[in-house]
Design a protein around this nucleic acid. Structure first.
Ligand SMILES: NC(=O)c1ccc[n+]([C@@H]2O[C@H](COP(=O)([O-])OP(=O)(O)OC[C@H]3O[C@@H](n4cnc5c(N)ncnc54)[C@H](O)[C@@H]3O)[C@@H](O)[C@H]2O)c1
Ligand SMILES: NC(=O)c1ccc[n+]([C@@H]2O[C@H](COP(=O)([O-])OP(=O)(O)OC[C@H]3O[C@@H](n4cnc5c(N)ncnc54)[C@H](O)[C@@H]3O)[C@@H](O)[C@H]2O)c1
Lengths: 241, 241
DNA sequence: GCAACTTTGTTCCTGCGTTCACAAGCGGCT
DNA sequence: AGCCGCTTGTGAACGCAGGAACAAAGTTGC
C-alpha cells in the first residue's frame, strides 16, 4: 500500500549482497554498458576511465566510483578490459537472465513497443501482449498475438513475465497494474500519467512524456523572459536565411 | 560544445527572476499540475498540502517547499485554491504560451507520438513532422503531412517550433539534432539511445527505455538472489492457481 | 631490474535536495 | 470580539551524490 513511485534510495535496512548501489549509478551503468558494447563492435578491447566517461558524458571520477560498485576489474596504468567490464556490469544489473516483458494496451504506443526490435536484442523479449478491445484480441502484432486483459494473471505466470509495461489510458492503468501484480509481476514500467498504488515489493518506474515537455517548457520560459521568441542572446549556427 | 545532458542545477550565475528552482521540483510541479486539473474537473476547489501530496505520492513538506518556489498562494488553516494554484504553476512552467512541437523520424515511435492527442491538449501542438524516407514525405500522419529532413531548418523557423522530438535511429540522431538547432530549436527530447552534443544554450532531455528496463532488471536481481523466480517472500494477492 | 609514467580506486569535501519541526497566520466557533 | 485549532511557509538539520585530489599499483622503457 506504500506509495513510492520514484525516490527510492535503496531500502533503509540494507543487508543485501555487496554495497548499496545508488539508483543514479545504476542508470549510468546501463549507459556505460551501451557505450562499451558499441566500442567492442568496433574492435576496442581496452578503455580508460577518461575515454569511457567522455563517451558517456559524465565525469571520470563519477564513472570510476560507479565502476567500483561493480568491483575492481580495471588495470592501473592501462584501463578497463571492455569485454570483462561488460560481463561484470551485466551481472550486476541482472542481465545474465532474460527478462520476459508483457505489454498491456496495444494502441499507438503499445504497437510501437511491440514492433520495436531493440528490446529483444538487449535481453528483454516481449512474450505477451494484452488489450481489452475484442477486435484486437487474437491479432498478431510484431509476430505475437494479443491476449485479453482478463487472462493477464494466468498468462503472466505461465510465461514467467518479470516486467509489465502499461500503455493503457490513465483510467485503466490501476486495474491493469493490479492484474499484473496478481500475475506475479513485480517490475512495472508505466506510461500512463497516473501514480500507481502497489505493494511495497513492486518496483514502478514511470515514463511521463508530458512532464518531460513541461520541464523543457520551463527552461524555455526561463531563457526568454519577453513574450516574443526571437530575443535569443547569440547563436552563430542558428542564424536563419 | 558542452556535454550536459541532464545534471543541470540551474546556471551557476543565477540572476534570473525569482529563486532558482531545482530541476527535481520542476518535474514534481508538473505532476501537481496534473493532479490539480484532474481534481478541478471533479469539482474540488480547495486542497491541503497533505491531500495534494498524497495524491502526487510525495512528502507534504516537499510539496510545500516546491509550491513556495511558485509563491505564497495558500491560505493558512485552509489549504490551496486549486484554480489559483494551477494558474500560477502554469505561469512558472511557461505553459501560458503554446509550445510548437516537431517530431523527427516517423517510424514506430514517431507515429505513436504524432497520433497522440494528449500533447495538443496540454498546450504542446505538433506542427511539423520530418523523415528522410521519400515514401513517407507528403503522407499525412495524424492529420499533418510529413516533410523532408532537409527542410527542418526552414520549416522549424517558419512555424516557430520550440521543441524538437527525435525518434530516428541512433545513427541519425546527431545529424537531426544539428538541423533542429540550426532551425532555432533550443529544447530537444531525445528517444534515440545516444548522448547528443549541443551548444550550451540548448536543453536536451533523454528518454531511454532500455535504461528503464535495465534499472528494473537490477531491482529484480537484487530481490531474488537465487536463479529461480518463485522465491518470493510473501504476497497475498500473487498466489497463483 | 629500476625508474618514471600512467591510470585506477578511494578518501575527503562541498553542495544540493529532502525532511523535520515550529512559528506565524487565518478561519471558524462560541 | 476573542480564543482555538488547523495549515501554511520557512529555518535548520540531515543524508546523499558528485567532484577534486591523492596514494597505491601496474606497465612500459631503458
Ligand atoms: N501515444 C503516445 O505517444 C503517448 C505519449 C505519452 C503518453 N502516452 C500515454 O500512454 C498511454 C497509451 O497511449 P496511446 O496513445 O497508445 O493510447 P491509445 O488510445 O492509442 O491506446 C490505448 C489502448 O489501451 C487499450 N485499453 C483501454 N482500456 C484497457 C484496459 N482496461 N485494459 C487493457 N487495455 C486497455 C485500448 O483498447 C487501446 O488499444 C496513455 O495513458 C497515454 O496517456 C502516450
Ligand atoms: N519503438 C520503440 O518502442 C522504441 C523504444 C525505445 C527506443 N526507441 C528508439 O527510438 C528511435 C526510433 O525508434 P522506432 O522504433 O520508431 O524506429 P523506426 O525504424 O520504426 O523509425 C525510424 C524512422 O526514422 C527515419 N529516419 C532514419 N534516418 C533518418 C534521418 N536521417 N532523418 C530523419 N528520419 C530518419 C526512418 O525513415 C524511420 O521512419 C530509435 O532510436 C529507437 O532506438 C524506440
Amino acid at each position: 500500500m506504500t506509495v513510492h513511485q520514484h525516490g527510492r534510495y535503496s531500502t533503509p535496512v540494507e543487508d543485501l549482497p555487496s554495497r548499496a548501489v545508488p539508483e543514479a549509478a545504476v542508470g549510468r551503468l546501463a549507459i556505460y554498458l551501451r557505450v562499451l558494447t558499441s566500442m567492442i563492435e568496433q574492435g576496442v578491447t581496452t578503455m580508460s576511465s577518461e575515454e569511457l566517461a567522455g563517451a558517456a558524458g559524465v565525469n571520470s571520477a563519477t564513472l570510476r566510483k560507479d565502476l567500483s560498485y561493480v568491483g575492481s576489474y580495471g588495470t592501473r596504468g592501462v584501463g578497463y578490459d571492455t569485454a570483462k567490464l561488460v560481463e561484470h556490469i551485466e551481472q550486476l544489473l541482472g542481465l545474465t537472465r532474460h527478462h520476459s516483458v508483457a505489454v498491456v494496451g496495444i494502441g499507438n504506443l503499445g504497437h510501437a513497443l511491440a514492433n520495436y526490435g531493440g528490446f529483444p536484442d538487449r535481453g528483454f523479449p516481449v512474450t505477451a501482449l494484452f488489450d481489452v478491445d475484442e477486435d484486437l484480441v487474437g491479432i498478431p502484432v510484431g509476430g505475437l498475438p494479443v491476449d485479453h486483459v482478463n487472462t493477464i494473471p494466468e498468462v503472466c505466470a505461465e510465461r514467467e513475465v518479470t516486467i509489465g509495461v502499461i500503455c493503457t489510458p490513465a483510467s485503466a492503468a490501476q486495474i491493469v497494474c493490479d492484474l499484473l501484480v496478481a500475475g506475479g509481476v513485480r517490475c512495472i514500467l508505466n506510461f500512463a500519467p497516473v501514480m500507481l498504488q502497489v505493494p511495497s515489493d513492486v518496483e514502478v518506474r514511470r515514463v511521463d512524456l508530458a512532464v518531460e515537455l513541461q520541464i523543457l517548457s520551463f527552461y524555455q520560459a526561463r531563457r526568454s523572459p519577453g513574450p516574443r521568441a526571437g530575443a535569443a542572446p547569440v547563436d552563430p549556427v542558428a542564424v536563419i536565411r
